[in-house]
Design a binder for these strands. Structure first.
Lengths: 126, 126, 126, 126
DNA sequence: GTGGTCTAGACCACC
DNA sequence: GTGGTCTAGACCACG
C-alpha cells in the first residue's frame, strides 16, 4: 500500500497513519466510497498493533473522513476529498513553519536556510 | 532572553531547551566560559517546571556543552561552539527532511512545495 | 465521587464516563478550571481499566470539555459549562426519544406510556 | 411491514428485530399461527443482512415465540401473545428506567424531566 | 505523581 | 471476514 511509518519521527504512529490517509485521499489515491485497508490488514502491513490502526481510524471517523460500514469495513466519505485537500497544506505548512522558525531563531540567515532546503530537496529525489 | 518555547510543537519542552541552547551557542549569543541562566531563573522565564530545565541542562552536560562550576552555575565549555555549529545544521536538517519527505509523500510536487516554503518564509519575516 | 457505571447499560463504559463528566459539569459539580480525577484514580474507583478512562478523557479533550495540563492532570475548560448544559438535554432527549418511539411503535397508547413513566419515576425516588 | 430499524439506536439490529416482532405480537399485529415474513424478504425490506434477520428469528425460536414449519416458514406460536404482552412492559420499562436514571443523575429535577418527556411525546405525535 | 502511547490478546456484534 | 470495546501491562515525557 501507500503508507510508510517512521517510528523515530517524533509524531505518534497513529497520527502518522491519520496524516497519511488524509494525504492519500487528497492525492486521489483513495476516493470517496472506497474502502480503506482493514484494521488487521494495515496493522500487519505496517508491523503495528491493530489497536494503533484502530485508533487512527477512530480519529478519522470523528473528523468525518471515514465512515464505518457494519461488517464490511471503513469507507472514505464524500466529504473527505475536499476536506483532505484543505487539510494537507495546513498540516504540512504547520510543521514547515515550526522548522523554519527554529532555523531562523537558531541564527541561520535566509541564504543558509535556502541552501539547506535545496540540499534536503535533492536528497529526497535520490 | 533568547529562548521561545512552543508547547504544541511536538518536541518535548526539555528538548526544545536543549536545542535552543545549542543554537544560541552556535550563533555566538552564548560564548565559551559564559554562564547560562540558573535553572530557577530560566524556569520562571519560560513558565516551565524547574525539573524540566534541569533535565535539559543535564542532557547538555552529558554532551559536554555545559559544565557545572561549583557554587556558581553552569558555564559553556570551550568545546561547545564548534560542536554546536556542527549540530545546528544536522538538527534542523533532520526535521526539514522529515517534513519535506511527508510533503512529497503527500502528493505535493516540487512546485507546490517550493511555493509553500516561500509562503512560510515570508510569514516568518512578518 | 459522582460517577456510577452500569456495565449492562448498552452504552460503552467509556461513553458512560463521557456523559457523566458532561452531566457533572452541567450540574456545576465540576467547574471550569477544576481538575477531574486522574485517570488512575477514576479507574480504580470505577473498577475499570485505566485505558478506558483515558479514552473517555480523550473524547472529552477532543470536544474541548477537558484540557490536559502537562504533568498535572486534566482540567475543565472555560467553554465546558455552557457546552455541557446544552449537551445534557440533547443527550438525554435523544435516548428518551428512542425509548418513547419504541413504546409508541410497540402499540402502547399515551395512557399506558404515561403510567409506565410514573411507575419508573417513583421507582427512581425509592 | 411494521418494522423500523434505527442503526444509530445503540441496540443491536438483531435485537431491534426481536423486540419489534414481540411488540407486533403483543399488539395483535401478528397473531398465533400467522407466518412471519421470510428471512430473505424481511432482510430486503429492512436493507439488512439476511444473517442478521436469521439470528433474530433464532432468538425468537429459542424463546418459543416463533416455531419453524418445515418447508413453509416461521409461524407465531400459541404461547407467543401472552408472553409478548408480558415482555413488552418489561422491555420498555427497562430502557425507560435507564434513561430516567441518567436524567436524574445528570442533575435534572423532576420538573425538568417531566417537561422533557412532554416535549418528546409531542415530537412523537408529529 | 500526571497523561500519552503502544503492545498483546480477548470477546462481541455484524456481514 | 469486519470494526468496537475492554483488559492488562509496559514505557516515556513531564512536574
Amino acid at each position: 500500500m501507500f503508507f510508510n511509518i517512521d517510528p523515530s519521527n517524533g509524531l505518534a504512529i497513529y497520527d502518522q497513519i491519520v496524516r497519511q490517509v488524509k494525504f492519500a485521499v487528497a492525492a486521489d489515491a483513495l476516493r470517496a466510497g472506497e474502502l480503506v485497508p482493514s484494521v488487521r490488514e494495515l496493522a500487519r502491513e505496517l508491523a503495528v498493533n491493530p489497536n494503533t490502526v484502530s485508533r487512527a481510524y477512530g480519529v478519522l471517523q470523528a473528523e468525518n473522513i471515514l465512515a464505518s460500514v457494519r461488517g464490511t469495513g471503513m469507507e472514505v466519505t464524500t466529504d473527505a476529498p475536499g476536506q483532505c485537500r484543505k487539510d494537507r497544506l495546513r498540516l504540512i505548512g504547520e510543521r514547515l513553519h515550526s522548522v523554519l522558525q527554529e532555523a531562523r531563531f537558531g541564527g541561520l540567515n535566509r541564504n543558509e536556510i535556502s541552501s539547506l532546503i535545496e540540499k534536503e530537496l535533492s536528497r529526497l529525489d535520490a
